[in-house]
Simulated assay, not measured.
Amino acid sequence: MTYDDVNIASDGYFNNAFVGMWRGYKSTVEKKCNWADYRVPSSNCDFDIGAGEFNVAEKYIKNGWLDIALKNMAPNPAIIKNKTPVSQKLWWQ
């Protein structure tokens, strides 16, 4: 098995992608589920606002993306680091 990182420095690069539906073991409710390395495939145009790298739009930060926004240190004055950890509701709850 080989990890394809030939174009890892290219804008829009992603790898190990999945696009599908997620359903809990005890539920019939399905949710759109997609992920990849570096970028999220088939996401809303207003979700990933990064030009050359993944960057979450401000309106999605409250849905559990604060850690990614802080890691990327997006220049956004609305993002303020808390002195104490704050537990956030997980997306599947």
Rank of each mutant, 00 (worst) to 15 (best):
N55F: 02
T84K: 13
K26M: 03
N15M: 05
S43C: 15
V19W: 02
F14D: 06
G24V: 00
S27Q: 10
L70N: 05
N34K: 12
V19I: 12
V19S: 12
E30C: 07
N76S: 11
W92V: 11
N82S: 13
D67F: 06
C33L: 15
P75I: 08
A9W: 07
C45G: 11
V86Y: 05
Y60L: 06
Q88N: 05
A69D: 05
A74E: 11
A57S: 15
G52E: 09
A69C: 05
G64H: 02
K26T: 00
S10F: 09
D5Y: 09
D11G: 07
E53F: 13
I79S: 01
L90E: 12
P75D: 14
Y25C: 01
G20W: 08
A57H: 14
K59C: 01
F18Q: 03
K89L: 15
N76I: 09
K59H: 06
F18S: 04
I68R: 06
G64K: 01
W91R: 08
I79L: 15
A17S: 14
R39I: 01
G24Y: 03
T2G: 07
G50D: 02
K89M: 13
F47L: 10
Q93M: 07
N7Q: 12
S10R: 11
K83E: 14
A9T: 13
N55E: 14
D4W: 01
I61M: 01
K32E: 14
N15F: 03
N44R: 14
I68C: 02
N34I: 04
W91D: 07
Y38T: 13
I80A: 06
S43Q: 05
V19P: 00
I79E: 03
N7C: 07
K31Y: 15
C45V: 11
Y38E: 14
D46K: 05
F14M: 14
R23C: 08
Y25R: 10
S87A: 12
F14L: 14
I8Y: 10
Y25D: 10
M1K: 03
N16Y: 07
L66S: 07
Q93V: 02
D67K: 07
R23G: 00
